[in-house]
Computed example of a mutant assay.
Amino acid sequence: MKKEFPVYDICKFSYSQEEDVIVKRFAPYLQAMRKLHFPHRHDFYHIVFFTKGGGTHSIDFEQFTIRPYHVYFMAPSQVHGWNFEGETDGYVINFSASFFKSFLLDSQYLEQFPFFSGNAALSAIDIPDHYRQQAIDILEKAVNEAEDTGKYRTDTLRVLLLTFFLLMAKATHQDDTVKAATHHNYTVLRNFEKLIEKEYLQQRLPKYYAEILCITPGHLNNICQELLGTSAGDMIRNRIVLEAKRMLIHLDMTVTEIAYSLNFKDNSYFCKFFKNQTGLSPESFRKNI
């Protein structure tokens, strides 16, 4: 009986069992990782750029069709699974959460990119034609550099990967999201999202988070409405619902066990909360999926 998701650290995917970054062509990587259990989580950033193949990919209940020149960005803790059809190839990038922090003055630099936000709807990018060869050239250089043992290997990989991320933001105009918001408000929102990720099982009121962020609950709510079109309270509730859905579908736990795991005092309160948010009871959601 599976009661929790497998959580893989980057060492599981590293031949040397100690790397903070892995850049490889996808076909041989996939062959070496056939024993992985799906769905699963990572504790590192995971990116796959397809040049060949088909099938489907799910990230936190968002279903995507795999096609050439699609790239998927997955942040730590997201749950995902693959269903491949035919021969599959491309590039894979794995890097630890700390990989860029010693290199960049701004330790939160990656958080400016919406595709690293943990929002599944922003995780998939269809690369426009005129950016495809440029993206492949960058990743080919990265694959070759990853196989090098020279003194500047790690820093060169950091530069190449940052170049790739900037290209993806430019290709999809996702950088406009950041430009449209004031830098301060966007920083507050990202810090709020990170706090929710750490505290949502215990703390469910916007007032608690606003106090830590040194702003009023009303200001926090205004920022969420401005940048995401939703309330601060809904952001907290959506995170609880997402975890409930993950557990209902992927784990062999009863609804009562899930309710207590999510820190609800009783099963009936959890069922009422879940139905209010989704329109379905937990059991109906599980059966429908």
Results as ranks from 00 to 15, higher is better:
245 K>N: 01
145 E>R: 11
36 L>H: 08
224 C>W: 05
209 Y>E: 10
16 S>N: 14
152 Y>S: 15
270 F>V: 08
223 I>C: 10
181 A>I: 10
243 E>Y: 04
202 Q>D: 11
37 H>E: 12
201 L>F: 11
72 Y>A: 05
124 A>V: 02
264 F>G: 13
133 Q>I: 01
98 S>P: 01
173 H>W: 00
170 K>W: 00
119 N>E: 07
60 D>H: 04
196 I>A: 12
118 G>D: 09
11 C>R: 13
82 W>R: 14
82 W>I: 03
172 T>Q: 00
201 L>C: 03
83 N>Y: 09
216 T>I: 11
82 W>C: 08
215 I>L: 12
210 A>S: 14
147 E>D: 14
222 N>E: 15
204 R>P: 09
232 A>D: 03
142 A>N: 12
66 I>D: 10
179 K>T: 07
50 F>S: 07
229 G>C: 01
237 R>A: 11
269 Y>V: 11
168 M>D: 00
104 L>V: 04
128 P>E: 04
21 V>L: 15
242 L>V: 06
122 L>C: 04
202 Q>C: 07
172 T>N: 04
129 D>L: 05
190 R>P: 07
251 L>S: 00
226 E>D: 13
113 F>W: 00
30 L>K: 15
169 A>Q: 00
152 Y>Q: 13
94 N>T: 00
285 F>S: 05
13 F>K: 07
